[in-house]
């Protein structure tokens, strides 16, 4: 069983290494990730949202809906823990 797990892990690693071959070099400013969408966030953040911290402006404005989802995830986790573990105090809820 343990061997089987190990094989699965090694296969996953091998696929990842295979994919790494074609990746742009680490920290390359010319990689597609830094050319396509993100420049607008960097150059326009002050003008459009008056927020110098780009991470905040992207997090809470450009992609605010993701953050709403993130907050809901937290909320779900909290409610889940209450559902699973909290017992009622005797008598009242």
């Amino acid at each position: 069983m343990r061997i089987l797990n190990l094989i699965v892990v090694v296969i996953t690693g091998a696929i990842l290494i295979y994919g790494t071959m074609d990746m742009p070099g680490w920290g390359n400013p010319g990689s597609p990730a830094s050319l396509h969408v993100s420049p607008r966030y960097i150059t326009k953040t002050l003008e459009e949202t008056a927020t110098p911290n780009m991470v905040t402006s992207v997090l809470a404005d450009y992609r605010a809906y993701d953050t709403l989802g993130e907050t809901v995830v937290i909320f779900t986790a909290g409610m889940a823990c209450i559902l699973l573990l909290r017992k009622r105090r005797n008598g009242h809820d």
Binding site: E48, T49, A50, T51, S57
Partner: peptide
Amino acid sequence: AEARALGI
């Protein structure tokens, strides 16, 4: 833009 900052 300021309204966006306040919204944030």
